Amino acid sequence: MIIDPRHLIQLHLIVELGSFHAAAESLNLTQPGLSRTIRLLESRLGVQLLVRGKHGSFATHEGKTLASYGRKLYEMSLQAATGTALQKGDVGELRIGAAFYLANELLAEPVSRFLATRDKASIRITPGATPHLLEALDNGQFDLVIGGTQMLAPDHGLSFEPLLSNTLDIVARVDHPLARLESVTLAQLRSYRWVACLEQDPLRRDVDAGMASLGLMRDAIALETASMELVSQVLEHTDFLSMLPSPLASSRVTRGHLSRIKLDNAYALRPIGVAYRADTALSPLINAFLKELRRWAQAQHCEND
């Protein structure tokens, strides 16, 4: 049986964009016409390719496989139009899912450096909880996901490459009384109030565990917020303390916004890394961005040594 390559490209765009409506607009087709094409394809193959729901369309296992072929065909069509630029990783759109605090601050440097020399490339970054982002990666909606290491079932077919070690660091304003000490005691920490992320943030579970390890109760939290900028500003104007992932803490300390409180035993977190599909060949664009991420991570290691 010969499958029309255009139908595979259409399936890929439905999976990537998450809906028939968005794919039809991208392809300059009518939504009913696109729906008929997919129904015909499912009928000819004898398998269901998409699960349609109120919140969009999601690929079945068979749908993911065919959509991956469609993506390759789509990239080949771009390559035919742009020549060697695509082969070098200079052309195309990169779809990235990133943990909230990474998307909000830490990725600015590698993203800026990558795009500075690629005027025909673009990046779409979607923040979210890492487990949900990995599901979307598995479903073909992202090229890469950047976040904390997750325990994944083998049948996911995802690979995780560690980039940065990660701990929960205690931070405060630059001239905080504890910032001048070579080492602080748990009793000293317990005399201050704290700022924490919201309970809906996946990081909050780690923060709660880290505070519990210091013997701190929930009533020690004075402020909960989803805004990292607000965390910094409140810390700068009070004696409050907070716990931040070490790469984020280092960024704020290096810029002179906060100071790190010295504690003998830091609370270890999952390493920060990048996940991608192990069963799909990575495009030149993805590989080029991975190289930039690795350079950025190496520079972070050197700064913190």
Rank of each mutant, 00 (worst) to 15 (best):
A103P: 03
L29G: 00
L49M: 13
R113C: 05
E109I: 00
S19H: 04
L214P: 03
K54P: 12
K64Q: 10
V184T: 14
P5N: 08
D175E: 09
V231R: 09
S159H: 08
I170E: 01
A24Y: 02
F160E: 04
G140P: 08
V231Q: 12
Q87D: 12
A266Y: 09
H132G: 15
L45V: 10
L137A: 02
L115E: 09
L216D: 10
F114C: 01
F240G: 02
E229G: 13
S191M: 14
A212M: 08
L11N: 00
L137T: 00
A22I: 02
S68K: 08
A172P: 00
L178I: 05
G157P: 07
V184C: 11
A249N: 02
P32Q: 08
S26H: 14
G18V: 00
V253C: 15
S112W: 12
S57K: 01
D201P: 09
N139W: 06
A59F: 03
P5T: 09
D143C: 02
Y101C: 06
K262Y: 06
R270G: 08
D201F: 07
H61Q: 15
L137P: 01
L107A: 10
I96H: 03
M228Q: 13
F289M: 08
K64P: 01
A129V: 06
A103K: 04
H61Y: 12
A249H: 00
E75D: 13
A220M: 05
T254E: 15
R118F: 06
R52T: 15
M76A: 14
M1F: 01
L40S: 13
A220W: 01
R39E: 11
N304F: 00
Q79N: 14
L144P: 05
L144V: 08
T37A: 13
K54A: 14
Q48H: 12
V184I: 15
F240R: 03
G148H: 02
G83S: 15
E16F: 04
A136F: 10
T149D: 11
L244A: 11
N304Y: 00
F20Y: 15
Y276S: 14
S283A: 14
I14D: 04
G89R: 02
R255V: 07
T126H: 00
M211S: 07
I9A: 01
L102W: 06
A59I: 06
S213Q: 12
T60I: 08
G210A: 09
K291R: 13
L13H: 01
H12K: 05
A108S: 11
I221W: 07
A108M: 06
L263A: 10
D119Q: 13
D143R: 00
V51Q: 14
R205S: 12
T254L: 15
Q188C: 09
